[in-house]
Every structure is written in structure tokens, then in C-alpha cells.
Write a protein that binds this DNA or RNA. Structure first.
Length: 595
RNA sequence: GGUUCCGUAGUACAAUGGAUAGUAUUUCAGAUUCCGAUUCUGAAGAUGCAGGUUCGAUUCCUGCCGGGACUACCA
């Protein structure tokens, strides 16, 4: 039973019966701490129907609920706010339904199928801090949709072709001496990234050298030998030149190995991978068909464009004059291919940074113009950049934070703090290692997810790993401590049966507060899916943990004589632990049994 | 220039148009016979500026100030 929904329907009933008019949307919100009650109805909007003052209107609704709802035991009116006190027997019913429903927080299948794309890296360098926000966000949103009853397909598109990888290939050919991940001991993606950096350095040097010889900057950029090598590799690749193609495959293979180990550590997964090298040709076909159908047009030089001026945007190129495809062309192909592969999906979520908002606006418009009705069901899950306390993260300023390095640091910090607390007696090295990993990564994920995705955010590694405050480890700790309590109860042979809960007929305020927030979980999951925002779940989990700590502090459990009350409190603890666990799962945070 | 996002305590984040703007952290003052002292209680501290819409505005509208992103035949 969902108390929120019950109350809403009762209030609607009250309004329509009292004022003989259909009820408008009911504004129901949690009651402020300073007033008695748990739910508050905002009655100002109802005054138009009642043609009475706000307080009188609230009083009438309150009286009606008292007489007819069966769940309200008292009410009070402050200005136009109607504060409702829910009957303890109703709280008891609500709690029993949560406690006995092991699937609480997982809504039944709704028959819809969607696709979530996230990560989608280039293959010329390792993942960085921005990718972490992307991966955690995409993974979490996918999990949230699953919990809402959707069938979800997690995918990514890998930008495996183009000048960027050819740059790494060029530098490797010139300076690599046949170095491989095996001979160098480096992770494959880092090795390829090293040559991308080497390319950049050599390129800059060569430009400068040419400029001192009097060549113009534009010319120097084109003439630099290493750039010419990269361009020739790109051309050879497109002609499927054997050696070039093999080198490309080899180096991409190194990168994929590196990525896979990073993804494994992050705890994210994918059902299917798409590669641009497979989709760009389909995109090209679609564009050419579009020209034939008059959706696009060709300029004198042979390049193909789409005109979006009627939609308030510019003209946008789709094929270059030389017939090669651009980023947009590939994305058109990828989208179409995905809907062919998964004909039942009703929508697609693209997890991509907000610097590409314009790109996706254009992409969805183009797909719509091509006549694909699913174009309207595509959504760009846009997120803001992640800043560091030390300054902005920009690759050209050399302050990119590598994802692997950052995870190492977080885990090392978790280890340091845990050791300082001296909590590791009797824990094997292997278990301790797993624990540091759980805490370090939990801190990282929670910190990146607790902020509204669309906002630019500041990541402070030190703050994130604190075991107190609005952090992942605080949630993990609370869960671990509850599990310890439950184990203790089990060791004392205390068994809680659902019927035991009926014996508790009245609650302390702290108990009611925990029950109230417990009962909101399913609403929060729905809200999070509607807003594509794991931040809602993160905030909920923190509130629940905090509320539980107050409950735990104010009402000691094992010093009680009253066994009914004792069992009730253990059941509350179990339920909180279960829901914290589900919330952590939705956020992709590992769940420790003890810390 | 155009489009767009953002400006909330020292710091970092909240607030479907609702009550005295929440929470964390920091600082200060306290509590704890106990299931795990990584807990709890109290105090101090904020909506960039100017108008408008209304019973009511952090939220919606207009202008200004400040910051970011986009505005490539790059990906």
C-alpha cells in the first residue's frame, strides 16, 4: 500500500464532495518539523473552489478526512496549510506491507523497452574524470529504469575510426620501436594515449620549426610531416590498406583491453557495443537517400547539407565535398541500426556531456525529417563538466585527471583512513582489499551522482571519502552497522514474524519519522526515472540513513524489556538496511556487510 | 554577436510557485553505563542586482551584472 496515493485520492474525494467540483492537482508535501503531523495539504489553490478563506477551507477538508478517510486521526491548520496526523494503526499497516514485500522498491514490469547509451569513448586515450561521471550516470539511470519495470539495453558507441587514432598510430610508427602493452608493462589504453601525447608534442615542435623558417601558421599545420603521416594513414585505412588496417586493429585492441579492466573495476557493463567503423557507411547511405528524397541538398562542391533554418538552427554539413562522412553522419547510421537491432525499444537515452547539446538537437531533428517516428523518443541525458578544486579540467592545460589514477587514489585513501581507525583486526588481507575498493569507489560514485546531472559540479576527492556527512561511505557504514545489529539479534535467536508487528500499536516520533521516509521509496524511484536523476536516489538514501541514525540514537534497542517493541525495532532496522541496499544498487555502489 | 545553461551560508549541495529557504562541512558549546563514538543535541552563518506577474517567487517573465558551454567540411 502506498500511503501517498491513498491520501491523494481521499483528498480529491473530500474536495469534490465538499465543493461539488472536480478536484485540481492536490499539493501534498511533508510537514515541517515544527508542526504536528506528517503530511501537509496546501489549501490555497482550493479557495477558488470553496469560495472561503484558506483556513476555513483547510478546516473543512480536515474535518472530512477525519470523518471519512479512515487514516487521519488528527489535524491542525496553520494559515492555509492543513497538517495531517496519520493514525498509528495506518503506520503499522504501511510498515507491514513494506516489511513483508521483499520486492518493495522494484516495480512490476511495464512492458516498455528502452536503450541507454553511455561511456562512448574515443580510442586514442584512457578514460578520464568526465567519463567517470558519464559512466556512473548512465549505469545508474539504466538501473533506475529497470527498477521502474522497464527492460533496458545498455550500449555504447565507440569512436574507433578517424584522425585521432591515426595520430597515435603515426607516433607509434615513428617512435614506438614495436612497444606493446606486454613489453612495456603499461595498460593498453595508457600506452596508446602516450603516443597520442607524443604526436601532439612532435606536431607542435614541427609547426614551430616551420614557422621559424617563415612558413605561415596555417601552412605549417598542414605541412608538418607527422600530420601528413597521420592523414595518409587515415586515407590508407579508408582504402583498407592491409598493414594500416592491421595496425589499427592491434592498437584498438590494446585500448579495448585497457577499457575493459577499467569498466570491470567501475562495476559498469554493456549489453552490446557499436563501432563507428561499422555504422558510418549506413549513415552515408541514409544521407544519400535523403538527398534523393529532397530532405537534404547538395552544394556545388558536392558536399551534402541539411537546412534547419526553419527550426531556428543553421545549415549543417552531412557529407564532405570528398564524400567522406562526419560525426553527424555516423550518429544517424548508429541510431537507425540500433532501432533495427532492437525493434521493440520505445526510446533511446544518450548519456553525453552538455557541450554536445546542439549536436543532439540537430541529430533528433534530422531523424525526424527522415521520417523516423521514434526520433521524438530520443533523449539527450546531458550533464555538466566536473571541475576540480585545483582548477578546470581541460586537456590542453594538461590537468586531465585519469580515471584509473583517480580510482587508485580513492582506494588508497580509503585504506589509509580505515587503518587509522584500527578496525581491521581479524580481517584477512584479501577481505580488507575488497573493503577498501568498496569504500573508495563508493565514495567516488556517490559524490559524482549526488548532484543534479545537468549542473556543473566540483569534485573534491578529500571531501568525498569522508565517512561522515553527505557521502557514500556514510550510507555504506550505516548499512554495515544495521547488518551488525541484525546479526546480533539472530545470535540471540530473536526471530521477527510479520504478525509480531501487529502487536505494536503506538509509535514514538522518531519511529514515525523513519516509517514515513521508508514509505516514500517507491515514489522516489518513479521521480528519479522521470527526471533521469540518480541525485534523487542519493538524496533519499542519505535522508533515510540520517533519519535512521536519529531513530537509533533516541531509542536503544537491546536495553528494552518489551519484546514486541524490540522485534519491531529490529524489523525497522532490517527494512532500512534492505532499502539502503537497493538504493546503493541503483547508484552502482558496492554494498559492504561490515566495515 | 547569436543560442543555451548556471549565480543560494566560508565551502559543497537541496528546495513539483508554499510555512521561519533545508542538508553536509567548517567553527564554537554540550551528550553518551548501551546494539559499532564513522553517533546524537544546540549555536552561528546564504537566495548577484533592479523591476514585473500573485494570496505567496530561490523557482515564472523582462532588463542588467558575473561565469560556463555551443555557434567546425574535429570527434
Amino acid at each position: 500500500m502506498n500511503l501517498d496515493l491513498i491520501l491523494r485520492s481521499k483528498i480529491e474525494e473530500a474536495v469534490s464532495s465538499l465543493f461539488n467540483q472536480p478536484a485540481p492537482a492536490i499539493q501534498l508535501q511533508p510537514t515541517n518539523q515544527e508542526f504536528e503531523g506528517s503530511h501537509t495539504v496546501v489549501c490555497f489553490p482550493l479557495t477558488k473552489l470553496s469560495r472561503k478563506g484558506p483556513e476555513e477551507t483547510a478546516r473543512l477538508v480536515g474535518e472530512y478526512l477525519l470523518a471519512h478517510s479512515g487514516v487521519v486521526t488528527r489535524y491542525n491548520v496553520v494559515k492555509g496549510f492543513l497538517n495531517l496526523v496519520i493514525h498509528d494503526s495506518t503506520w503499522s499497516d504501511v510498515f507491514q506491507s513494506i516489511y513483508t514485500n521483499k520486492n518493495f522498491g522494484t516495480l512490476p514490469g511495464n512492458g516498455f523497452e528502452i536503450m541507454v547509451e553511455y561511456s562512448s569513448p574515443n580510442t586514442n586515450k584512457p578514460l578520464h574524470l568526465g567519463h567517470l561521471r558519464n559512466n556512473f550516470l548512465g549505469y545508474s539511470v539504466a538501473e533506475i529504469f529497470k527498477a521502474n519495470g522497464y527492460t533496458v539495453h545498455k550500449v555504447q558507441i565507440i569512436n574507433d575510426r578517424g584522425i585521432h587514432i591515426c595520430k597515435s598510430m603515426a607516433a607509434w610508427k615513428l617512435y614506438g620501436n614495436g612497444e606493446t602493452p606486454e613489453t612495456s608493462g603499461m595498460k593498453g589504453d595508457h600506452l596508446v594515449g602516450k603516443y597520442y601525447v607524443a604526436f601532439d608534442k612532435a606536431y607542435k615542435d614541427q609547426i614551430q620549426e616551420l614557422e621559424t623558417k617563415g612558413v605561415s601558421r596555417d601552412e605549417a599545420e598542414k605541412q608538418a610531416p607527422i600530420m601528413q603521416l597521420a592523414v595518409s594513414l587515415l586515407r590508407k585505412w579508408e582504402q583498407k590498406d592491409h598493414d594500416t588496417y592491421e595496425l589499427w586493429k592491434t592498437m584498438n585492441g590494446w585500448v579495448y583491453q585497457g577499457f575493459n579492466s577499467t569498466y570491470g573495476r567501475m562495476g559498469v557493463d554493456f549489453e552490446k557495443l557499436y563501432y563507428e567503423s561499422d555504422t558510418y557507411l549506413l549513415g552515408k547511405e541514409e544521407v544519400i537517400k535523403g538527398v534523393e528524397r529532397g530532405v537534404f541538398f547538395k552544394k556545388a562542391d558536392g558536399s551534402v547539407w541539411v537546412d534547419l533554418t526553419s527550426d531556428g538552427l543553421d545549415q549543417k554539413v552531412l557529407l564532405r565535398a570528398d564524400g567522406t562522412s562526419v560525426y553527424m553522419t555516423q550518429d544517424i547510421g548508429t541510431a537507425i541500426l540500433r532501432f533495427r537491432d532492437f525493434p521493440k525499444i520505445t526510446g533511446q537515452i544518450y548519456t553525453v556531456g552538455n557541450e554536445q547539446e546542439y549536436h543532439f538537437k540537430v541529430l533528433f531533428l534530422i531523424l525526424d525529417k527522415l521520417g523516423y517516428d521514434w526520433a521524438k523518443k530520443c533523449y539527450h541525458l546531458s550533464y555538466g563538466m566536473v571541475d576540480l578544486p585545483t582548477g578546470k579540467m581541460k586537456s590542453r592545460e594538461g590537468t586531465v585527471v585519469d580515471a584509473d589514477d583517480l580510482m587508485d587514489e580513492m582506494v588508497a585513501e580509503a585504506e589509509k583512513q580505515t587503518r587509522e581507525l584500527g578496525k581491521l583486526e581479524g580481517v584477512s588481507n584479501e577481505d580488507a582489499g575488497k573493503l577498501f575498493e568498496m569504500i573508495g569507489l563508493g565514495a567516488l560514485k556517490f559524490f559524482l551522482l549526488k548532484v543534479d546531472p545537468k549542473k556543473r559540479m566540483l569534485f573534491d576527492p578529500n571531501e568525498s571519502i569522508q565517512l561522515q556527512g553527505f557521502t557514500g561511505p556514510f550510507i555504506q557504514y550505516t548499512h554495515a552497522r544495521i547488518r551488525a545489529i541484525v546479526r546480533k539479534a539472530e545470535s540471540l535467536s530473536i526471530v521477527v514474524r510479520p504478525e509480531d508487528l501487529k502487536l505494536v500499536t503506538s509509535f514514538e516520533p522518531a519511529e514515525r519519522d523513519v516509517l514515513q521516509i521508508l514509505s516514500l521509496f517507491e515514489n522516489k524511484i518513479r521521480e528519479a526515472a522521470k527526471d533521469y536523476s540518480p541525485a534523487i536516489i542519493a538524496n533519499y538514501a542519505f535522508d533515510l540513513a540520517k533519519q535512521y541514525n536519529q531513530f537509533y540514537q533516541s531509542i536503544p534497542i537491546f536495553s528494552e524489556e518489551d519484546t514486541a517493541k524490540l522485534k519491531f525495532r529490529i524489523a525497522v532496522s532490517e527494512s532500512v538496511a534492505l532499502i539502503l541496499k537497493k538504493a546503493m544498487r541503483l547508484l552502482g555502489i558496492f554494498v559492504p556487510e561490515r566495515m
